[in-house]
Amino acid sequence: MAGEAENIRLLTFVTGGEKYAADISAITDIIEIPPITFVPMLPGFIEGVINLRGKVVPVIDLARRLNVSEEEYDRHSCIIVFSIQSTAVGFIVRRVGDVIDVIPAQISPTPDLKSTVRAVVTTEEGYYKLIRQEELVEA
């Protein structure tokens, strides 16, 4: 199902009991959770760093970052690696869902520009919150 020109392709995922989506063009990897090296003196939502093919990539616990309920991770949990201003950043999520194609009309931007949620995406399966990943990595 090749999307038409104006279609936007999103990756959906679940964490902290909430349904989220992210623009797939910003995602470089979806990986199993490797051993994470703890880095002291950082806010609690930064889990540490991982070795991603020779690059040291920081990892953020998305549920804790978004202040939704604490999440237990198991072997089906994943790290989604985003490229934000050409820097790799990983987000731990409980489950990765599907890749969906939506048209702009399905996306309703949130009024608050500083919100961590960019927009709400309406689909047949319900609402997905489109995350604003650039905002999530700010201190």
């Binding site: 003196m41 930064i46 760093v49 920081p58 201003q85 820097t87 790799a88 990595v137």
Partner: peptide, 9 residues
């Protein structure tokens, strides 16, 4: 990474 550097490590 710049993400961590912003915490003045």
């Amino acid at each position: 990474s710049p993400l961590l550097a912003q915490y003045n490590l």
